[in-house]
C-alpha cells in the first residue's frame, strides 16, 4: 500500500547510499598517497567534487518541492533520496577532509555541513515520531474540533458562573479571559503556559489552570447548599477545560517541533554555501 519517505520504493535510496558509502570508504582505505590523506590528492579532489555536487543537489530539494506543476518523480521519492544521500554525504565529506581539522575556513565549512546534516537527522526523527503522537494525543480529532469544544466549554462556564457570587464569577471569567494559547516561538516549543488569573484584585500566574482550579476548590469549602452543586459542576467542567487546553498546548508544541528544525536547517545551508564558496576560492586561488 502506501509507504513513508523512509521506506519509499522498498528503501531503494538507502541501498544506493549504502553503496556510495562502501565505495568511498573502500577507496579511502585502499588509496595510499605519498602525502597524508587530504583534500588535495586525486581521491581528495574526487570526493570533494562528489561532495560539492551532492550538496548542490541536496539543496535543490527546496526548489523541487515547490515545483508543483512539473518535475521529475514524486516529492516523497526526492525526500527519501535526500535523507539517505544526505547521510552518505557525512561520510563522503569526512573522507574528503582526510581528518585534517584546524581553525580555518575549510573546517568551518565542514562544521556547518555537519550541523545541517544533524539538524536534518532531527527533522527525520521529528517527522516519524511526532505525527503519530499528535494523532494519538488528539484521539483523531482535529485542532479545530478542540478549539470548538473549548469555545463551547467557555460559554457553558460563563453561563453557569453568571449565577454565582462575585468571587467565583471573577475566578472563572478572568481565568477564561487571560488564558493564553501559543505565544512566541519559545513558548510554543516548550509548551510554556503564560495564562494568568485575577485573584483579589491582583494578577497571578495560572499555569495549567492550576491556580484557578485550586481557588475554585477553596471556594467549595466555603459555599454550602444549592450553590455548592453549581460550583461542583463548574469545577468539573473546569477540569475538562484544563485537559483540552493541555492537549492543545501539547499539540502546538509538537507541531512546532516538526517545523522548527527547518529554521536551522535552511539558514545553515545558506551559510554552508557561503563557507564552501570561500573554501573553494581559498583552495584554488591561494593554494
Amino acid at each position: 500500500m502506501h509507504s513513508s519517505f523512509l521506506s519509499h520504493a522498498n528503501g531503494r535510496y538507502f541501498w544506493f547510499a549504502l553503496g556510495l558509502i562502501t565505495v568511498s570508504a573502500s577507496a579511502y582505505i585502499l588509496h595510499d598517497p605519498k602525502q597524508p590523506p587530504n583534500g588535495g590528492t586525486w581521491l581528495g579532489y574526487t570526493l570533494g567534487s562528489l561532495g560539492l555536487f551532492m550538496i548542490v543537489w541536496l539543496a535543490y530539494l527546496g526548489r523541487r518541492k515547490r515545483n508543483f506543476a512539473k518535475g521529475w518523480g514524486t516529492v516523497r521519492g526526492w525526500v527519501s533520496a535526500h535523507v539517505y544521500f544526505g547521510t552518505a554525504l557525512l561520510i563522503v565529506a569526512t573522507l574528503h577532509t582526510g581528518f585534517q581539522f584546524d581553525f580555518n575556513i575549510h573546517t568551518l565549512a565542514f562544521v556547518l555541513m555537519c550541523l545541517v546534516i544533524f539538524s536534518g537527522f532531527f527533522g527525520v526523527w521529528a517527522y516519524r515520531v511526532y505525527p503519530p503522537e499528535r494523532n494519538q494525543l488528539k484521539k483523531s480529532q482535529s485542532i479545530n474540533d478542540l478549539f470548538l469544544q473549548l469555545e463551547e466549554i467557555d460559554s457553558q462556564l460563563t453561563r453557569l458562573s453568571s449565577g454565582s457570587d462575585n468571587e467565583v464569577r471573577g475566578i472563572v471569567n478572568s481565568a477564561i479571559e487571560r488564558t493564553v494559547i501559543g505565544g512566541g516561538y519559545l513558548d510554543q516549543l516548550l509548551g510554556r503556559d503564560n495564562s494568568k488569573l485575577v485573584l483579589q484584585g491582583s494578577v497571578v500566574d495560572n499555569t495549567e489552570q492550576q491556580r484557578a482550579l485550586d481557588s475554585l476548590l477553596e471556594q467549595m469549602t466555603r459555599i454550602q447548599g444549592l450553590e455548592s452543586t453549581r460550583l461542583s459542576e463548574i469545577v468539573r467542567i473546569f477540569g475538562a477545560r484544563k485537559r483540552i487546553l493541555d492537549t492543545i498546548r501539547e499539540d502546538i508544541r509538537m507541531h512546532g517541533l516538526i517545523q522548527v528544525w527547518l529554521l536551522v536547517h535552511i539558514p545553515l545551508t545558506f551559510a554552508l554555501f557561503a563557507a564552501m564558496i570561500a573554501h573553494l576560492f581559498a583552495v584554488f586561488v591561494y593554494w
Binding site: M1, H2, F5, H8, T74, V79
Partner: peptide, 26 residues
C-alpha cells in the same frame, strides 16, 4: 502529466489516492 499534484507534492507519503476496491488493502 505526472498525475495528481497533491500526492506528488507530499514529502512524507501521507497523501494517497485510492479507489474503494483498495480500501481492503489499506
Amino acid at each position: 502529466s505526472g498525475g495528481p499534484a497533491c500526492v506528488r507534492a507530499c514529502p512524507t507519503g501521507a497523501a494517497m489516492r485510492l479507489s474503494p476496491e483498495e480500501f481492503v488493502d489499506l
